[in-house]
Design a protein around this nucleic acid. Structure first.
Length: 254
DNA sequence: ATGGCCTCGGTTCGAGGA
């Protein structure tokens, strides 16, 4: 089973790229973030015609998440029951016995800002949700755009990013707290030292210069560690015309 | 030179992203 995550920065703009990519890579499950569309406008038919079930939770202009799957999706939870939120940033479902949680963690904008406080509260709410889910499920996958580069290895130039949002101690501490709930960074299990990124700024030729951050992740509960065959970042779609600023991350399980 | 880009909504600019 091949599982992936991709912040597409508008599903309307990226629809053809997503369909092309999931077919080419034989993706079973794709978690999407920043769909930026109301539910009535989500392209369900296009994905159904491509052979995928869809579950989604969107809003106008901002945010929005979705799960596409070749296999049935059950026990769907929209958003976080323990963190009331108008913003659509989370969707959870069970596929082939795996509990899959798709998240679009807030950006935080500026350290100390209201948006930053919201990010930390959101993360606190996520911890509560994960603790509750762990009591019901064993094989869990937490994936999406975390908007956190967990270590200095995940930043092209730590000096440039020092004390900025996405790399701050407060944010990294939450990432560690998630790991204390026995979630592991699948990419790092398989690639302990590699400096590879999932996001590059549209400006300043950041992609061409590989000035990126690794902020999109696939975390797995310890019960499925032995099942991982591969976890990698696919830079190819970032080279396509009119790309998302994020690259997809893929993981293959036995 | 301290910016540069992309998307959306709703009109051609401002907000938000990271």
């Amino acid at each position: 089973m091949k599982i992936a995550t991709w912040n597409v920065n508008s599903i309307k703009v990226r629809l053809n790229q997503v369909i092309k990519w999931i077919k080419k890579n034989n993706i079973d499950v794709l978690c999407l973030q920043e769909t930026k569309t109301l539910n009535i406008n989500f392209p369900s038919k296009e994905f159904f015609d491509a052979g995928y079930y869809v579950k989604f939770s969107g809003q106008k202009t901002y945010n929005g998440v979705a799960i596409l799957s070749k296999h049935e999706i059950s026990d769907v939870v929209i958003n976080n029951p323990y963190f009331p939120d108008d913003q659509q940033r989370m969707i959870t479902g069970t596929i082939n016995g795996f509990r899959i949680i798709c998240v679009y963690i807030p950006n935080g904008q500026l350290i100390g800002s209201e948006k930053f406080k919201y990010k930390l509260h959101w993360l606190e709410g996520l911890l509560t949700f994960l603790e509750k889910e762990k009591k019901k499920y064993t094989q869990m996958i937490l994936t999406g755009d975390f908007n956190i580069a967990p270590t200095e290895k995940d930043v092209h130039d730590p000096e440039v990013w020092k004390d900025q949002v996405l790399v701050s101690d407060a944010e990294r501490k939450y990432f560690e707290k998630i790991c204390l709930l026995k979630f592991q960074d699948a990419f790092r299990i398989l690639n302990p030292k590699e400096k590879k990124y999932t996001w590059w700024d549209y400006r300043q030729l950041a992609f061409q210069k590989n000035k990126g951050l690794r902020i999109d992740h696939i975390l797995i509960s310890s019960e499925i560690e032995k099942k991982i065959l591969n976890c990698d970042i696919d830079k190819a779609p970032r080279k396509w015309e009119q790309p998302s600023d994020h690259a997809p991350v893929t993981m293959t399980l036995i």
